[in-house]
């Protein structure tokens, strides 16, 4: 009779467990079937009234049922918990298209992008970076660079003067003289990026302030071939492997021979187009072999040492590279302009 009763309870418990849909309901069932005062447990307390031979079998049976009900409840609980978690997570779904919380890198005036990049190219070739004042003496800006007083070349560069002997440097070349004087006759391999000033009215292609990167190598047995190879390497790193360079004779008082360096036009690859005015080439920098007078004046014996020097216009490179149409844009710092450029790794 009890056995029948137990089976009935078992079936009822299993039914109710499987049909329950909340963990609250399961808690109720736990109490209903497994609490001390439940029907099942009350049967357990009546075990003592049974004859010993039945007591054992009955006890075993009761424990089995209790264990199975517990297990069923536990399984059901897990099932429900899982479902509830899924439901909760689903309700927490976010709109992944909303803006991120990153810290955006700052925009960088392309002037600096180019300046740093050129600097790094030469640093990797073993150059050091030298530095010199923007307010210069006539001595360093002109005299020591083989441009004596009243030299016609002074007309090439209209100069801002502070006094008869002080001026705003018109090029970064005075750093050549500073470096030579400091190096005291030892070999030199430097570049010097810096601001320069000329008395030009500002317009789309002229600026009273602009910047150059000066390069200077002095050692024994340096020749134009070394200049050519160094600049070739620079041009390929800066403008791409396909760019070629071409040297044209020119004139600077502090180099002899002097050259203008052209690179093959990026937009037509050398065939000739409107950007290069049909020539296939674009002028990007000037250079040459350091003039023996300059070596001599700055403490080097031109019979023992020779060297090459070059000057690159930073804005000019940026203008060519990024197609910037007006040099004044560099100095306006419109954030919509700055934010088009960021430092690349």
């Amino acid at each position: 009779m009890e056995n029948q009763n137990i089976n009935k309870i078992y079936d009822q418990a299993m039914d109710e467990i499987s049909s329950s849909s909340t963990s609250e309901k399961l808690q109720e069932l736990k109490i209903k079937f497994l609490a001390k005062k439940s029907v099942l447990m009350s049967l357990l307390s009546t075990l003592g009234t049974l004859p010993p031979e039945e007591r054992k079998a009955m006890g075993q049976r009761l424990n089995e049922v209790k264990a199975e009900i517990s297990k069923a409840i536990e399984e059901k609980e897990n099932e429900l918990r899982k479902a509830e978690m899924e439901k909760k997570l689903k309700s927490e779904t976010i709109d992944i298209s909303l803006p991120s919380k990153k810290v955006e890198l700052g925009g960088q005036n392309p002037f600096y992008v180019v300046k740093d990049e050129i600097t790094d190219i030469f640093l990797n070739m073993g150059f050091e970076v030298a530095d010199g004042p923007e307010v210069e003496t006539d001595l360093f800006n002109f005299e020591l660079l083989n441009i004596p007083q009243d030299h016609p070349a002074r007309d090439m560069q209209d100069t801002f003067y502070i006094s008869d002997s002080l001026l705003l440097r018109t090029h970064t070349s005075p750093v050549q003289a500073h470096t030579m004087k400091e190096a005291n006759g030892k070999p030199i391999r430097i570049i010097c990026p810096g601001k320069t000033y000329r008395r030009d009215d500002d317009d789309a292609t002229h600026s009273h302030q602009f910047a150059q990167i000066e390069g200077l190598v002095i050692d024994k047995n340096i020749n134009i071939g070394h200049l050519k190879a160094t600049l070739e390497l620079f041009v390929k790193k800066m403008f791409g492997e396909k760019r070629e360079i071409r040297l044209r004779p020119s004139y600077f008082p502090f180099t002899e021979p002097s050259v203008e360096v052209d690179i093959t036009c990026a937009s037509c690859g050398g065939k000739g187009c409107s950007m290069c005015k049909g020539t296939g080439y674009i002028e990007i920098l000037g250079g040459g072999m350091v003039h023996p007078n300059v070596l001599k004046m700055n403490g080097y014996d031109p019979d023992v040492y020779s060297g090459f020097a070059f000057g690159i216009g930073i804005e000019r490179v940026a203008i060519l590279r990024y197609g910037i149409d007006d040099i004044r844009k560099f100095y306006q710092n419109d954030v919509r302009f700055l934010n088009q450029y960021r430092k690349k790794a």
Partner: peptide, 8 residues
């Protein structure tokens, strides 16, 4: 943002 302005 890194800017560049005139010295004068």
């Amino acid at each position: 943002d890194e800017c560049l302005t005139y010295s004068l």
